[in-house]
């Protein structure tokens, strides 16, 4: 379990760097470090399906980010300016509410069952019925494409809608010219 917390600390540091660094290419690389740390954590808790998806999605996202940065600009000019009164006030108030939220979260987490002991019985039913019920050796595929295929249809619809949105928005820009 300790390695999970180490990766969590690494991710928090990398996320801070990604938001605060001036060079946008370095920020994208830090973002990639966060994504790959998530992938390693998935492998550590024995979820290779999610790890594969996380790695390939992270790679494609970074490629698109880097392609955009090479075509626009490297430097984020909003970072590194002197803090003014409103900024200081917003940082202080945000930290205060983040602290309150964290105290509440710690109290809530005490009530959760221990790691790996789910309260719901549905997961053990999936494990029991997975191979005899569907014939698929990969339990994740059994769940997402047989037991809960309707959810997968919804997810595919979300992707379809986003692709239609991107293509339609960018094409309308192209038509005006």
């Amino acid at each position: 379990m300790i390695e999970l917390y180490l990766f969590l600390a690494f991710m928090i540091i990398a996320a801070f760097i990604a938001t605060e660094i001036k060079d946008l290419l370095a920020a994208v690389i830090s973002l990639g470090a966060v994504g790959f740390a998530v992938a390693i954590m998935f492998i550590l808790v024995q979820a290779p399906d999610l790890a594969i998806v996380q790695i390939v999605v992270e790679v494609v996202t970074i490629v698109i980010f880097v392609a955009v940065i090479f075509r626009t600009t490297h430097i984020d000019e909003t970072i590194g300016k002197k803090l003014t009164g409103p900024h200081v006030f917003s940082i202080v108030s945000f930290s205060f509410f983040a602290l309150l939220f964290l105290i509440a979260v710690i109290n809530a987490l005490q009530e959760l069952p221990a790691f790996g002991n789910a309260t719901m019985k549905v997961a053990s039913e999936y494990i029991r019925l997975g191979l005899p019920g569907t014939g698929g050796a990969n339990l994740v595929a059994d769940v997402i494409l047989d037991f809960r295929a309707l959810d997968t249809l919804g997810e595919a619809t979300v992707l379809f809608t986003s692709v239609i949105g991107v293509v339609a928005l960018i094409r309308s820009v192209g038509r005006k010219k």
């Binding site: 399906d49 594969i52 998806v53 698929g136 990969n138 595929a141």
Partner: peptide, 14 residues
């Protein structure tokens, strides 16, 4: 996808 880790989503992204 039904035998080893991965599946349609990961393969499509690759």
């Amino acid at each position: 996808g039904h035998l080893t880790p991965g599946g349609g989503f990961a393969g499509g992204v690759i």
